[in-house]
Amino acid sequence: MQALRAAGCEPKDVGGAFCCGQPAYNSGFAKEARRVAKPTLRAVSKASSGDCVVASGSCAAMMSHYWPELFAGTPQAAEARRVAERTKELTVYVSSRLESEPVNDAPQAESAAEVHPPLAEEPVVIHDACHALRGLGAAEATRRALAASGRRYVNPPGSERCCGFGGLFSVKMPDVSVAMADEKLDLLASTGCETVVSCDLSCLVHLEGRAGRRGLALRFEHAASLLEGIGPGAGK
């Protein structure tokens, strides 16, 4: 909410929004996904006819891509299509409201620690969430929004590779999932940055959980908390 206000918007909290149904849907249970998603769909369409901003890449992808399919042939079909069109991922939305082209001047080195002279503020390393990256094409928007917040960022090697969360994949195939997380964490740590930023909370929970178990000194922040730093006048 604060990130949106910082970008010059007047957001309204959708009180009844709860779950988009993705865990059930990705496991193959459409009926159950519909049952869980229906109250959220109702709440969103009741709350406003404006844009629906979602601070999680995979939920945004579920709502904008899969809801029309999920609710097809039900009384909520038209409602789901309307909400799908209005659903925007947070950084995409904030980026679309920026007036000027922000600049990221963090050197894109293999390791931020090797940068001379050292930067005044430590840059963050971006973790692209798959749904945001491929499903929503949000990679550019995330970077524009972060740059507008004044925080420098670094792109890690292998930035397009999945972190291994994949919803319930992380517990159905835990060993493969953790192996994927380990490789991703090594790549993120190789940049020398201490803070990992992503626009998807679920990737962060997975990576943070694994980093904690491995005792890695990495911090994990949702992009929203950085966007709070967008200065006045950044928005339209």
Partner: peptide, 16 residues
């Protein structure tokens, strides 16, 4: 089960 599969190799999420 699934909670165990998570817990075995990963910490639980913390409050933000």
């Amino acid at each position: 089960g699934w909670p165990g599969a998570w817990n075995k190799c990963r910490d639980l999420p913390r409050a933000r």
